[in-house]
Amino acid sequence: MIPDDLLYTSSHEWVRLSDQDALIGITDFAQCQLGDITFIELPSTGDTVTQGHEMGSIESVKAASELNSPVSGTVLEVNAELDGAPEKINQDPYGAGWMIRVRLSESPKGLLSPEEYKPLAECSE
């Protein structure tokens, strides 16, 4: 499941660009690899994030990993629902499982098109 109106990173984040903003989450492949997500740590509104740098972390029953920001800018909004219900990321990674909205400080470079991302995301399930 790779929506064709999003851009991607090789570390399995997705980005929805609109004007000056970017909505960010992790891909269906990423949530599938992690399994049931039990904890998420995200930046706060007003924080600065930098493309390719760690912006938070995510844990499942069996694994823990860092989240990298696919863009640079200032965090405008954080999906507060994920704190108590991180399973939304498993259930709806491109919708209710969105993570943060960022006001871009520069245009992101090197994001992958759906066609470029697809070979990186062959999920076994």
Partner: peptide, 10 residues
Amino acid sequence: PVQYASGILA
């Protein structure tokens, strides 16, 4: 098998 499609929590 570590889990099935339903997942560990289910």
